[in-house]
Simulated assay, not measured.
Amino acid sequence: MSNPKMRTAILISGRGSNMTAILEAARNKDYPAEIALVLANNADAKGLETAAAEGIATAVVDHRPFKGDREAFDAEIQSVLEANGIELVVLAGFMRILTPGFVDKWRDRMLNIHPSLLPSFKGLHTHQRAIDTGCRLAGCTVHFVRADMDSGPIITQAAVPVLDDDDEDSLSARILVMEHKVYPRAVALVAGGRTRVEGMRVIIAQTDEDSQSPSRFLFH
């Protein structure tokens, strides 16, 4: 009997382009995550329409009625996740800072993607900062979420060269292409039970299938 797929929720605030990339990967029958829920903090998030068109359950937990009570907002999200039997949480452009208590509940079961090669350039405006600093390489990082922003153990990364004529938009566009490759890979690795965390290092179990078909739904 094959192992059941891990019930996964994707949290978004907008169009959810990384969400779309994960949904496409999840169409593969061997993909180990079942996208069971897409949750947004904004009822107008375009990604909700994308998810609904795929037949995926959607939910909205609007942060505004909570008037800055982050604990109550996160408790409502937790209630929705529990009601849907969620086992893994994937943040895909979710523009809210989650409380330490919520993060601890999902320790090593919640992923985020950041548009830089962490630990460099945490926070915002990462592409312009990479250009201004004279970096030769920029990229993106998928990591487990910790209470400190952009600080969790790194699962996957991808790098692109910073070209002499790059501006923020051109660099961002090339990095986004890589985001759409590494994020589905990271979700597959975690949902497939192939990761374990030792301190700040994520150990990834290799399989014979990797060497036979390295480009399957994993990016190397």
Rank of each mutant, 00 (worst) to 15 (best):
167 D>T: 03
123 G>D: 08
1 M>K: 11
186 A>T: 07
147 A>Q: 14
80 V>A: 07
78 Q>A: 14
168 E>L: 00
175 I>M: 13
25 A>L: 07
90 V>I: 14
105 K>G: 01
20 T>K: 07
86 I>L: 11
128 Q>C: 00
68 G>M: 05
193 G>C: 08
144 F>T: 13
87 E>H: 13
38 V>W: 02
86 I>G: 10
202 V>R: 02
68 G>E: 02
138 A>G: 09
66 F>S: 02
89 V>C: 11
200 M>P: 14
137 L>P: 01
191 A>P: 14
68 G>R: 06
190 V>E: 11
45 A>W: 03
117 L>F: 13
84 N>Y: 07
78 Q>R: 14
160 V>D: 03
217 F>T: 12
171 L>W: 04
45 A>K: 06
82 E>G: 09
6 M>K: 14
81 L>N: 08
143 H>P: 15
192 G>D: 11
107 R>L: 10
158 A>Y: 10
51 A>E: 01
46 K>D: 09
17 S>E: 00
206 Q>G: 00
27 R>A: 03
93 G>A: 09
43 A>E: 11
213 S>D: 10
56 I>V: 12
209 E>C: 03
181 K>R: 15
162 V>P: 00
36 A>S: 14
40 A>D: 04
44 D>M: 09
39 L>C: 04
147 A>S: 15
3 N>C: 07
70 R>N: 05
219 F>Y: 15
129 R>L: 10
19 M>R: 04
134 G>E: 11
78 Q>V: 02
89 V>T: 10
14 G>A: 07
197 V>S: 08
58 T>P: 06
1 M>L: 10
83 A>K: 14
57 A>P: 02
80 V>H: 02
208 D>R: 07
154 I>H: 09
217 F>H: 13
118 L>R: 15
176 L>R: 10
58 T>I: 12
15 R>I: 02
219 F>E: 12
21 A>F: 05
18 N>P: 04
13 S>G: 05
172 S>Q: 06
32 P>E: 02
98 L>M: 15
198 E>D: 15
2 S>E: 15
158 A>C: 08
8 T>E: 08
196 R>S: 12
102 F>Q: 06
50 T>G: 01
171 L>E: 00
201 R>C: 06
75 A>C: 09
82 E>N: 15
47 G>W: 03
167 D>F: 00
107 R>I: 06
47 G>R: 08
11 L>V: 08
106 W>N: 10
219 F>S: 12
192 G>H: 12
155 I>Q: 03
212 Q>H: 08
165 D>Q: 08
52 A>K: 12
139 G>D: 13
62 D>R: 03
29 K>G: 11
97 I>Q: 10
21 A>I: 06
58 T>Y: 02
105 K>E: 09
195 T>G: 06
138 A>E: 03
215 S>E: 09
43 A>G: 05
198 E>C: 11
133 T>W: 12
216 R>D: 11
40 A>L: 04
165 D>H: 06
14 G>Y: 00
